[in-house]
Design a protein around this nucleic acid. Structure first.
Length: 492
RNA sequence: GGGCCAUUAGCUCAGUUGGUUAGAGCAUCCGCCUUUUAAGCGGAGUGUCGAAGGUUCGAGUCCUUCAUGGCCCA
């Protein structure tokens, strides 16, 4: 295939690169370009810019040659602007160099703003400079990049060719930025706590393990932010939050990525009722900020984020749905029988309260489309939450469900160090019984609690799921720029 | 872990009942064209049909295994 060799797209581009260099236009030499306008400004401010000289830079996304006049569409961060190149305006030598340009090249142009016969705002180019040559073909300009695998592995191509993807990630950025403003304005301070830990606590999940060479000890990546943020409440900060990556060594699905972003906050002298109000305020505010309305559409469901949200007692709701009062089921065996009577398969190693959690996830959670606080979780599956004084087997905890999915988890934080110690002991007992997902025994945290933590309300929000909701994305991979992937066999 | 689906040119996709030399659009290359815009017109090149086995006179097509991804379930 020796003749085909000359049509290898990359080789063609390398040849063009060499010719550009021969003509004194090295595409990789420029360090700056005096950009003074964005494409969008030129279109929106046409009335004042007509006849003015502007300089813009961007990526060539379309070329339409007409002999001695070429049209080139330039895309910059904000949009698209058409550029008109004529032999008369740019000069014969420069004009001939246009044939050495390709889709994907990055150029800077300087020229005068005008409108074509068809009425499109265009730059009549007087001079241009190649700022970077692309040696690779762009995805199909009509259809964009469709191959899901490639979209994730080479996200930059996805962003280049699919504008709605750029918009989703812009919304993600604005969401996080808004949340920071929201909490900062309410007197919270943002902190950073360690990712590498000797114990991975704060929830029940399997951690990633790694090793510190100098100290010759195993470390774990955090699975939650909780325990260190509470130490800061002990330390005298009344309102703290962290937005950070957590890591859970679990399966990958449309709702799970092994690393994801959590917002956790803790506020002293309030309880889970106070946190409910805060979450309501937060959600309706973020929707208003980003979408201009508290009413949003997610995967075909119309969801109204206007407070107040429904509050459903988990035990009462289970009674209403099944006719069984959970607190009267006393043994693991009875719990499994109950699940079986409902046609729900359960892992035999699960304990009583975990079986209930499973039943709730099937019988109740999927129906919670409108924002709903599901509260009153059993103490057995809430080792860090305060007991309800009126029902000590249950806790002052809620999970917020929207569109059938858990969006937030919160409780009145357990600040009784003796009860906390007993809870950890119980978790250890369950671990010995074969349960892989139990909370570790954290003596250092107990010491912090023994110094006295004020009554505190705490909250965790899955930022990825929040962004999914706000951007109507079906998969978490659509809101994570570079989702976890198996390495490709060949290629990138 | 289980089920279903997908994988064909750089990209987006066709490909009939198993039948000759695997196609289209875009992109690329050559030629023409000074207000086009999915520009147009004329010409050209482009394939390990995801991988490995198997059935068959003959496999992109049927079978098995594997890989990667998607959706659903656990």
């Amino acid at each position: 295939m020796s003749s085909g060799e000359t049509f290898d797209p990359r080789q063609v581009r390398l040849d063009k690169l060499a010719r550009l260099r021969e003509h004194g236009m090295d595409p990789y030499q420029a360090t700056t370009f005096p950009v003074d306008h964005l494409s969008r400004e030129i279109t929106s401010d046409y009335d004042t810019l007509e006849g003015q000289e502007v300089s813009v830079a961007g990526r060539i996304m379309a070329m339409r040659g007409h002999g001695r006049a070429w049209f080139i569409d330039l895309h910059d961060s904000q949009g698209r602007i058409q550029c008109h190149f004529t032999e008369d305006e740019v000069g014969l030598d420069a004009f001939h160099l246009l044939t050495e340009l390709d889709l994907g090249d990055i150029i800077g142009v300087t020229g005068v703003v005008f409108k074509t016969r068809r009425g499109e705002v265009t730059i009549q180019v007087r001079s241009f400079q190649v700022l970077a040559k692309s040696l690779q073909d762009l995805p199909d300009k009509r259809h964009g990049l469709k191959d899901v695998d490639l979209r994730y592995r080479q996200r930059y191509l996805d962003l280049l060719s699919n504008p709605e993807v750029r918009e989703t990630f812009r919304m993600r950025s604005e969401t996080v930025s808004f949340l920071r403003r929201f909490f900062d304005q309410r007197g919270f301070i943002e902190v950073e706590t360690p990712v590498l830990l000797t114990l991975a606590g704060g929830t029940e999940a399997r951690p990633f393990a790694t090793h510190h060479n100098a100290l010759d000890m195993d470390l774990y990546l955090r699975i939650a932010l909780e325990l260190h943020l509470k130490r800061l409440i002990v330390g005298g900060y009344d309102k703290v939050y962290e937005i950070g990556r957590v890591f859970r060594n679990e399966g990958i699905s449309t709702r799970h990525n092994p690393e994801f972003t959590m917002l956790e906050l803790y506020q002293a002298y309030t309880d889970f009722h106070g946190i409910m109000s805060l979450v309501e305020d937060m959600l309706v505010s973020v929707a208003a900020e980003l979408l201009g309305s508290p009413v949003i559409t997610y995967q075909g469901s119309v969801i109204d984020l206007t407070p107040p949200y429904a509050r459903i007692d988990l035990v009462e709701q289970l009674l209403a749905k099944t006719g069984v009062r959970w607190t009267q089921i006393r043994t693991d065996q009875d719990a499994h029988q109950f699940a079986e009577s409902l046609g729900i398969k359960t892992d035999p190693s699960l304990a009583r309260a975990q079986v209930m959690d499973k039943i709730v996830s099937v019988v109740i959670e999927p129906e919670l489309i409108q924002p709903t606080f599901l509260w009153h979780h059993p103490v057995d599956i809430s080792p860090l939450a305060k007991r309800d004084p009126k029902a000590p087997e249950l806790t002052e905890r809620f999970e917020l469900f929207v569109a059938g999915r858990e969006l937030a988890n919160a409780f009145s934080e357990l600040n009784d160090p003796l009860d906390q110690r007993e809870r950890f002991v119980e978790q250890q007992r369950q671990r010995l019984g074969g349960n892989q997902e139990t909370h570790p025994f954290d003596e250092d945290f107990l010491t912090a609690l023994e110094h006295g933590m004020p009554p505190t309300g705490g909250l965790g929000v899955g930022i990825d799921r929040l962004v999914m909701l706000l951007t109507d994305s079906a998969s978490i991979r659509d809101v994570v720029l570079f989702p976890t992937m198996r390495p490709a066999e060949n290629g990138p």
